[in-house]
Structure formats: C-alpha cells, structure tokens
C-alpha cells in the first residue's frame, strides 16, 4: 500500500470518527441526554465540544507521529502499521469521546434537574406493528439472488479452477485460495448474516425515549434505514453473484466496479437520510433520562430492555444491548464466521 492511499484512508476514517457526536439527536451531547433541544448552543457545552475537537484532532496526528519512526526503522510492515494505526485511532478516539461524556455529565449534574427529564416515566404510542415496522415480507426480495449464488456455486463447483480469488483490490483479484466448498460458499454465508442483521434492525427501538415525540417520526426513519439496508444487501448480493460466476467464466470488471460504486454512494445517502429524518427533528415532551444505561456514552447496557439491537446514541446505525446474552451470541457468531471464512480462504 502506498503512502497516499494509507493517509487517505486514515484521514477519512479519522474524520468520520471525529464527526460522530454530530450524528446524534439534537438533545444528545456526547451520549448524554437533555430535555432542551437548544443544548448544542449552550456556552458550557460549546466549550466541551471545542476541547473535544482539539484533543480528537491532536490524537489523529499524534498516532501518525508515534508510528512514523517505527515504519521508517523497518520494524513493522505497511499492512501491520495500517492496522495498528486504525486500532490505536479507535481506542484513543473512544477515550477522547469518553472524556467529553464525563464533562457533559458533570455539567448536567451541576444544573438544577430539568422537570421534563425523568428517569421513571415513559409514554408510548399504541399502534399496531404494521404501522411501525417495515413489512417482513419485503425481506423476501433478498432471497432470489442468494439462492442464485448458492445454485451457481453448487452446480459450477466442478468447473471452477483449483485456485479461487478471495480478495479483490482496485485492479482485480489480489489474493487466491485453494478451491473448497468453504471458499466457494462463503459469499452465501455473508448474505445470510446480512439478512439476519436486517431482521434485528427492523425493530430496534430509538436511542432517546420518554414519549412518542422524544424521537419524532422515529418509525419512519427506521423503515427508511431498513429499506437502505435491504438495498445495500441486494447490491452486495449482486457483487457476490458476479464473483461466484467469475470463478467459472471470465466476467467484465464493470460488473464488479459498478455495484461497488453504488455501495459507496449509499454512504452519503445514509447521512442525508439521517439529517433529514432524525437530526433535523425537534424533540419535545418528557424525555427519559437513561444516561446510566449508556456506558461511556455509547455502549448500551440495559437488563430490562428486551431488544438485542438498538439505535446508536451517537453515530448512525445500530448497536447491541450488551445486557442481552442473545445479542452477544449474534455478534460472536458473526465474528466467528468471519474469522473462520478468512482462515479457510488463506
């Protein structure tokens, strides 16, 4: 990997990390919930944000400065340095975020309790699942391509070469593995995992509760996110189908590049949906103060909540309820399958 690509990816991921606090609902600052939707304009909060930005940006460069001599001295190879820099980035930025969470909590406790903020009362709307959840039957759209990939893999197996490409770079495949059922069928496993995730996201509750207006129009936002996941799933399935076909018959690169670009376009689309249907909404009414359930401001641990997945308090997307063994099983299952597949495909 050359230096420009490395720095490009590194700074891009850093920017996403640093921007995370802005991807939360209006009354949430560093994972701490307020009843006041103008809280981001508060002077004390602004000071905390400024301090966060300075330390977060400083950390990005500090990691580079620490790692640079190691690479220059030839102690690590490029790939290791890249992985190390990202691991350090995640760790340090999480700590910087946590420092800001603590400051925000301290500021909140300093103020007199907001009567609109209660740790006891919840008001929920009574609506049928049909109105609030994305229809389950739509998930069937994911099936045909999955089945097609499976059939092509099974029927095409005898015609595939003894060495199968398992990793694709910008210029085409750059990693190969000996042919086995595991390597050939791995795309189908990935597709199954994706479908399972959509199933959980479909009913993940909002990160801010208290009353139906605490996260206005959340049901619609969740439906859109589920739809986006299904579209992502479909494009990913298309990529996998093309890859499996390419094992048997040469396929033009355009069939891989086009869907990959489509997936990349979906990222800003997701951000737009977030700002339009979540961040721009003004919360009102009584808000549930559940800061204690969000460890470090971003890790959800709530024994009484039956949800395995919930909306992230900070950042776009969904996170697990760490108090649920079932949620751990899903995550460990996915990681295990991913590790097994990558080991098998070496």
């Amino acid at each position: 990997m050359n230096l420009i690509t490395f720095l490009g990816i590194y700074f891009f991921i850093s920017a996403l990390f640093i921007a995370q606090p802005w991807f939360s609902r209006r009354n949430v600052v560093f994972g701490v919930v307020f009843a006041d939707d103008q809280i981001w304009k508060n002077d004390n909060v602004r000071k905390i944000i400024r301090a966060y930005l300075i330390s977060a940006v400083f950390a990005v460069f500090a990691i580079l400065i620490i790692l640079a001599p190691l690479v220059a001295a030839g102690w690590t190879n490029d790939m290791l340095a890249f992985n190390l820099s990202l691991a350090l980035l995640i760790l340090v930025e999480t700590l910087v975020f946590y420092a800001a969470t603590r400051k925000t909590r301290a500021y909140k406790q300093m103020n007199k309790p907001d009567p609109e903020l209660s740790s006891r009362n919840v008001i929920v709307a009574v609506k049928g699942d049909k109105e609030t959840l994305f229809p389950l039957s739509w998930l069937l759209i994911l099936l045909p391509l999955m089945i097609a990939t499976f059939i092509v893999a099974i029927l095409g197996y005898p015609y595939m070469p003894s060495s199968i490409p398992t990793h694709f770079g910008l210029t085409g495949p750059d990693h190969w593995a000996p042919k086995s059922w595991m390597t050939v069928l791995s795309p189908v496993f990935f597709e199954l995992m994706l479908a399972v995730l959509v199933l959980f996201i479909r009913r993940a509750p909002a990160s801010v509760k208290g009353n139906p207006k605490a996260a206005p129009d959340y049901a619609r936002f969740r439906k859109l996110m589920t739809l986006l996941m299904i579209v992502t799933g479909l494009i990913t399935e298309l990529i996998f189908l093309v890859i499996v076909i390419s094992f048997i018959h040469p396929v033009s690169q355009i069939w891989l590049i086009a869907p990959t670009i489509a997936v990349i376009i979906l990222l800003p689309v997701m951000m737009l949906i977030y700002f339009r249907f979540a961040r721009s909404k003004t919360p009102s009414g009584p808000i549930l103060d559940d800061d204690a359930k969000w460890l470090w401001g971003q890790f959800y641990f709530n024994r009484s909540d039956p949800s395995l997945f919930v909306e992230k308090r900070v950042g776009i997307g969904y996170t697990i309820n760490m108090a649920r063994p079932g949620a751990w099983m899903v995550v460990i299952g996915i990681i295990t399958v991913a590790i097994l597949l990558s080991v098998w495909s070496r």
Partner: peptide
C-alpha cells in the same frame, strides 16, 4: 403492538 414491540418501546 406485539409483545416484543411494546416491551422494546417501554424498555421492559
């Protein structure tokens, strides 16, 4: 709402 949905919304 189903038992599952209401449980998740109230958090019980």
């Amino acid at each position: 709402p189903s038992v599952r949905t209401l449980g998740a919304e109230i958090g019980v």
